[in-house]
Amino acid sequence: MFERFLKVLTSSVIKKQLMGLTGLLLCGFLLTHLIGNFLIFVSPEAFNTYAYKLTSTPLIYVAEAVLMGIFLLHLGLAMVLTIENKKARPVGYYMKQPTGRGSTFASSTMPITGIVIGIFIVLHIIHFKFGAHYSVTYGDVEMRDLYRLIIEEFQNKAFAFGYIVSMAFIGVHISHGFWSAFQSLGFNHPKYTTVLRCLSTIYAITIFGGFSSLPIYCFLQGVQ
């Protein structure tokens, strides 16, 4: 029974479906993360209070653990699948040309964009989650002044530029990954798949544009 379960779980189809499912969950996380971050545009108080409320509930540890689990599963599966794919063709072609009717820049660079995103996430957590701890008091409540940290970090032009470039990598990754996840999960429809592919591009542009607006805004805030 367990052996059967393990065989199913390690089959190419289920591995791809888990890859798609974790990818979609991460896409969902990115959108909520972006919406939360937009509070930076409202006011320092709105943003700091949001961050404070989010981190002051014990549920945050559960949420962080789940998110970490999803991310590690996505990363682990990506590594396993890529190694298997390389092994499937031990002798390469002398000449190989794409047909021009199938693969795209985004689809053929998924492992590369994925690695860059992985490195970005580690740096991102070090810089912001474990970055300098400033305090601010609104009313009677003392909380972390995350807003100040972000404004300060983005005064560094190279850092801000690196952030935007990383967002471009995420955008490219999502533009293929989003619709691809639906295909792996078994959803392909003569009408809706075309819509889904458009949606994939729109989602990628939204994530790239949305997150890129933050360093630009923060940089300009510091200049004033």
């Binding site: 791809k16 699948l81 298997e84 499937a88 199938g102 693969s103 795209t104 689809s107």
Partner: peptide, 16 residues
Amino acid sequence: DELGFGNCTNEAECEA
């Protein structure tokens, strides 16, 4: 899977 074929990455080069 057992025969050692790779996994699909939905690039559609096969279809093309």
